[in-house]
Design a protein around this nucleic acid. Structure first.
Lengths: 207, 207
DNA sequence: ACAACATATCACCAATTGGTGATAAAAATA
DNA sequence: TATTTTTATCACCAATTGGTGATATGTTGT
């Protein structure tokens, strides 16, 4: 009986690994990825850094595992369920763009990851980008490509511009107090303006 | 006579300062801003790091002076000269967007600076962002705001989305081999597709 | 209780980092 | 020429960084 309860023993490898992963998240949150030093990670985890080498192999492998542990695109997958597609994906695309604009703004971890992917050439970050690509390819191939026919590529280009615009503006809004094109991207007003623009441009695209 | 030539003496404060600034540029180019360590900067400049403290006050001030020394938006100013404005700024906006798409792609230093502004809260970087804002405000206030009337803010939002999309895609293309929305942003083909999309969206906006 | 093992800590290392005081060497000035 | 000022180098510092071998301690099976 005592043994069964003792699964929660003081020394638990899995629990310790989780502490390291949580430490990565916390530091990423507070200091950004430039603050991810082995000593700091260990101190934040409340464990000896040696364990990091024993359990993960090193800092890089730990970080890779952290990135893998996050499922940043799950919300896009959720969005894609139960939406009509007989409009060439218009309803879906609109919902996706607007929800991404909101989601990325709120999810500071995702912002860090997106930025990270623009700076460092990390394997796990590339894998993340590939996941996003494959996910999108599903939508493009099955719905919008046939709908737009010879203009399929231009549609992709438009979506690429809007998605990247969303990313950049959300990150910009978080790290800068400054306006962008005179719009305050932190205020409800400014954000509503972007949402209107997104809807407007998508409408025009489907015209 | 000898003294007048001796302006190019071996020991020249101004020349040394330039060497430091050039070193910052070189390291930024090769290693990115995470590689800007005092020892490396001094070694790259071929001078003692003590001089960096004597002449600039420290690493931060040196970097600030480097950023100030760059005039990244001069091409936008060039663009704005001699263009007709009786079309609500459409011709200008189109030329500006397309030239920015090309310029940012080619200017890796500017990419680094743009990224930097998304990560670090550096005074000189904020000033740069403000310069860009003030520059744009001139265009918006004098041309597009009156032209679009009550839709002026939506126009600004559209331009904000397109500009940021351009920034993000150009940086993404440089650091990633991966595609974005299935488009190869390094190929002439993929880039032409983005240019078409920009032109298309702007046309629809002015409809 | 005892060995065997897994888990965790500790002390220590070399390399790098940012930073400074003393000093040398060149240039300007007298 | 002698002196003063500017320019540059050097040696050194403390703190931080990534990394490891030896060791201690908790847990498990016999």
């Amino acid at each position: 009986m005592e043994q069964e309860i003792a699964v929660k023993s003081l020394r638990n490898k899995e629990k310790s690994k989780q502490k390291f992963l949580a430490a990565v998240e916390k530091i990423l949150h507070t200091k950004g990825f430039s603050g991810l030093k082995v000593n700091d990670i260990a101190r934040t985890a409340g464990l000896d850094k040696k364990l990091m080498y024993n359990y993960f192999g090193g800092k890089d492998e730990l970080i890779d595992e952290y990135i893998r542990s996050q499922d940043f695109w799950s919300n896009v997958k959720d969005e894609s369920e139960g939406t009509a597609v007989n409009d060439g994906g218009k309803t879906f695309a609109r919902a996706m763009l607007l929800s991404q604009f909101d989601y990325v703004f709120k999810n500071k971890d995702l912002q860090k990851i997106l930025l990270w992917g623009l700076i460092e050439n990390r394997k796990s970050l590339k894998k993340l980008a590939n996941d996003r690509e494959e996910n999108g390819e599903l939508l493009f191939n099955s719905i919008t490509d046939p709908y737009f026919g010879e203009n399929a590529k231009r549609y992709r280009a438009i979506i690429a511009l809007l998605i990247s615009g969303i990313y950049y503006l959300d990150i910009y809004a978080t790290t800068n107090d400054c306006t962008f094109c005179g719009l305050d991207l932190k205020s409800a007003n400014g954000r509503a303006e972007i949402e209107n623009a997104l809807t407007f441009l998508l409408d025009k695209t489907y015209e």
